[in-house]
């Protein structure tokens, strides 16, 4: 299958008083249609920056992103985002929160059809009896369910998940992962998730991309995950490869936890555009990537 989403030489640089801070440098990733890809790495490694550039919520300094044959610029409802905190509007009910986006992208549909869409997704995430509750009346886990329903209801080309369950306790997290994976399978949607939870990555993904620690984060290692789908937690955990992959990921994270690169490197040649603002610095020798 051909590449559906293509991130080419994606770079993010923030100018600071001390010189440019390179957060992400020449990040390349190709995602196939219907694939579930996870970026894993420590807090601050730049994985969320990649995701927010893909979401159009963060400007791209260098490189570009192509989604379904078109170059992206800015945010849009063709990409559904699930944030770490559900970011619901507090004065609206769960139903109204989901309807907000549905009204936009289904404006040619009838009122009845829009209502059916919202009710369908809220029921599927397990909120059939809590649609008319406001966020304050919902638990943290239920709010995140609304966030998932909201993203899927837009029928986006791509689903972006930014540590979607990071704020939940581990057991609630297991439940919501199951909800997410079932919805994803039914909708055959292309997804990119950012997480630092090894079990979450293994349970959900087709491919896990390990990112080295920032600044200047890059792809360190790519793991193919071949557990049969549809996935069920017990079966996945009993798969002969599960704990081997788990150990591999834990090791990767441990190695990179203690390897903070301190030497700043040269910004790309075409940045900044006039080339006069910053001094160039020597480039350090490339460090070998640990591969099992």
């Amino acid at each position: 299958m051909s590449d559906y989403c293509e991130l080419s030489n994606l770079t993010k640089i923030y100018p600071t008083p001390k010189g440019p801070a390179i957060i992400v440098k020449d990040f390349n990733l190709r995602i196939k249609k219907g694939e579930f890809v996870t970026l894993i790495g420590h807090s601050g490694c730049g994985k969320s920056t990649v995701l927010s550039m893909l979401a159009g919520l963060n400007d791209i300094t260098g490189g570009g992103i192509i989604l379904a044959g078109r170059e992206l610029s800015g945010a849009g409802p063709d990409r559904g985002v699930v944030f770490q905190s559900p970011s619901l509007l507090p004065w609206m009910t769960a139903f109204e929160n989901v309807m907000l986006g549905v009204e936009q992208v289904f404006y040619t549909a009838s009122k009845e059809e829009r209502r059916e869409i919202v009710e369908y997704y809220l029921t599927v995430v397990g909120l059939g009896d809590a649609m008319n509750k406001k966020p304050v009346e919902l638990s943290q886990g239920m709010r995140q369910r609304v966030g998932i329903a909201r993203a899927f209801a837009l029928r986006p080309k791509m689903l972006l998940l930014d540590e979607p369950f990071g704020m939940l306790d581990s057991l609630t997290r297991f439940e919501l992962q199951q909800v997410l994976i079932e919805l994803w399978r039914k909708n055959k949607i292309t997804a990119l998730m950012v997480t630092h939870d090894v079990d979450e990555a293994l349970f959900l993904s087709d491919r896990i991309v390990c990112m080295t620690d920032g600044p200047e984060a890059e792809v360190g290692d790519i793991l193919e995950v071949h557990f049969p789908r549809p996935r069920e937690r017990k079966a996945v955990m009993e798969h002969p490869d599960y704990y081997r992959l788990r150990e591999h990921l834990i090791e990767f994270l441990e190695v990179h936890a203690h390897k903070h690169k301190r030497v700043p490197i040269t910004p790309p040649e075409n940045w900044p555009p006039d080339g006069t603002m910053f001094l160039t610095r020597p480039k350090p020798a490339a460090e070998p990537v640990t591969n099992q």
Binding site: G76, E113, E116, E119, G126
Partner: peptide, 20 residues
């Protein structure tokens, strides 16, 4: 603890509009 909800759900077979 979960009560299973038996309600017939209909998802309209329609596509979102391209807002661009």
């Amino acid at each position: 603890r979960h009560v299973s909800l038996t309600k017939k759900l209909v998802l309209p077979d329609i596509e979102p509009e391209d807002l661009s």
